[in-house]
Write a protein that binds this DNA or RNA. Structure first.
Lengths: 229, 229
DNA sequence: GCAGTAAAACCTGTCCTACAAGTATGTGCA
DNA sequence: TGCACATACTTGTAGGACAGGTTTTACTGC
């Protein structure tokens, strides 16, 4: 057998502190110096373990104040994927379109049963502006706002977070041209009609078709990706 | 504005090396000492940045040999979530059941159109053994093997990885009793029938029902979770 | 007594050095 | 050619030191 590394020891210790209820969401963890002594590893190893948990959305460190246990919500942990999806090759992005299609369609179906008139009006305004503008950046921003505004209504934060991650990567590829934009605009209206008539199936089908259309455009054109902020 | 931290500098530098094509999947990265000099930060900061990327499944470190760029597949990055789902409270787990139901049902539908007779025979053997044994640990292992054996066939690694993550957490809750196991066994047979008849809809519906059944049992009993390895 | 301020204690962020331990490389001998 | 060994290189870990934040404490002036 091979020796257990110091960082693994630290990681296990920190995980246990959270898992066994010694630390609750929002609590401040013991300082790095104290943890170093308690777990019997150097402060550097403690810091590397904390970095790992921080990258995964489990803890959050504030300089000078301490390291705090996160809210331990699934949405937060899923969100951490957004830092890495930007490194995936086009092949993987196309693979993720299948996840996005299924999840976004489901989310829209849920939202169709929950949205109110005020929200529908807001979404309609977004589409009006989206159809009016010719600025590509503004189009992308409005498109994202429209879709995420719907997904946020679905009542499942994890689902919304996952869709957000999947969408963030797709946004890096500019597939909208004057011609494709007309089709895209029509797709948006179809989704909104489904929501307005509180028809989950119609809205869901329209969303799935919309995602699939984007995927087809991406497969056809395979443009170079733009950097993600 | 606030100064950019050293670790952020290192993280950005490493990310750029991968994103701009200087480093390809499988390549060995420059040593920590070289990176430290090139990016102008200490070796400790380089190590923390590498830890972050390692936690997110982007790079892989082998002691004495070096740090290597991962395969940059979405499935690998999704898999990193499995280290943290064990920390989620029951409330979040129930939220994730919705994702699992949608994704697993979709995966099973895809598998129904792709599976061959040999695989079906293997899956049938698994169910025979699952129905025969009374050992809880073996039941859990066989159940997992059956489900993942199906999901792996779906042809989308990301989807399979995501379902695997979602299932790993559910497995920590022992909801199987002699009574519920009979229902569970029947559910497994229904899924297998759908696969055998190459009927994606039947298989998908059976899978969704199976997941929902597990969720209902969990909501009713709310047992204490068992530690995940 | 109270408010405000200054000091002290504390915490994370960073860099440095040193060494242990694992891996790959190259060299020389048989 | 093939094997054994020494060497260089790489990651893993520990410890010390200080900078730059935040929180707490204590003190001063009113």
């Amino acid at each position: 057998m091979h020796e257990v590394s110091a960082v693994e020891t630290a990681l296990h210790g920190l995980r246990t502190l959270i898992a066994d209820g010694s630390l609750h969401p929002g609590d401040r963890m013991p300082s790095e110096g104290v943890l170093s002594e308690q777990l019997g590893v150097s402060r550097g190893s403690i810091r590397e373990a904390i970095r790992t948990l921080s990258a995964l959305g489990v803890v959050e460190t504030r300089r000078g104040a301490g390291t705090f246990v996160g809210e331990l919500r699934a949405a937060d942990m899923i969100r951490t994927l957004s830092l890495t999806v930007g490194l995936l090759p086009l092949e993987s992005v196309l693979e993720l379109y299948e996840l996005r299609r299924v999840l976004e369609a489901h989310a829209v179906a849920l939202s169709a049963a929950r949205c109110d008139d005020a929200t529908l009006a807001t979404l309609g305004d977004l589409l009006d502006r989206l159809e009016a503008t010719e600025d590509v950046d503004e189009q992308s921003a409005l498109d994202h706002e429209f879709h995420m505004g719907i997904v946020r209504l679905c009542g499942n934060e994890s689902l919304g977070s996952m869709v957000s991650v999947l969408r963030s990567r797709s946004r890096a590829y500019p597939v909208l041209t004057p011609e494709t934009k007309r089709v895209s605009d029509a797709g948006h209206r179809a989704i909104l009609r489904g929501l307005t008539s509180r028809d989950p199936v119609a809205a869901s089908v329209a969303a799935a078709a919309h995602v699939t259309q984007s995927e087809v455009w991406l497969r056809e054109r395979r443009p170079a990706p733009e950097a993600i902020g």
